[in-house]
Design a protein around this nucleic acid. Structure first.
Length: 108
DNA sequence: CGAATGACCAAGC
DNA sequence: GGCTTGGCCATTC
């Protein structure tokens, strides 16, 4: 795959520090794609082993379990919990607290 | 080039 | 509060 954007997405995801998470739409914005959230999510479909894909969640602070084996979803949650992220009763994360601020050039 | 897909997002019911 | 619809973008067939 010669996915150019994919690699950019992967590179950005790799920059996500431990204990923090980012949404697809957020990553898309950082990549200069305000509406390319789907493309980001699609890029994750190839989830390379060197990419902390578990730190990427949807805008609702929940793990994306769209037609995927529950094992992967459970694993993702376990990895996030291992990084200090606490899930709510509905398996939801408090984005206000764990939301990645983005790269250095991106400020709030 | 046209149609289909995909781990999304926001709005509507 | 959960399901459905439309839209957006890039990649693949």
């Amino acid at each position: 795959m010669d996915g150019r954007f994919f690699e950019r997405v992967y590179g950005l995801v790799r920059q996500i520090p431990s204990g923090q998470v980012a949404t697809y739409g957020q990553l898309a914005l950082y990549l200069d794609y305000p509406h390319g959230a789907r493309t980001v999510g699609w890029a994750m479909r190839g989830c390379p082993a060197d990419v902390p894909w578990h730190r990427v969640i949807n805008a609702r602070g929940r793990i994306s379990a769209h037609g995927r084996p529950p094992d992967e979803v459970v694993l993702q949650q376990a990895l996030l919990e291992a990084e200090g992220i606490v899930f709510g009763p509905d398996g939801q994360i408090d984005l206000r607290t764990y939301r990645w601020a983005g790269p250095a050039w991106s400020m709030e």
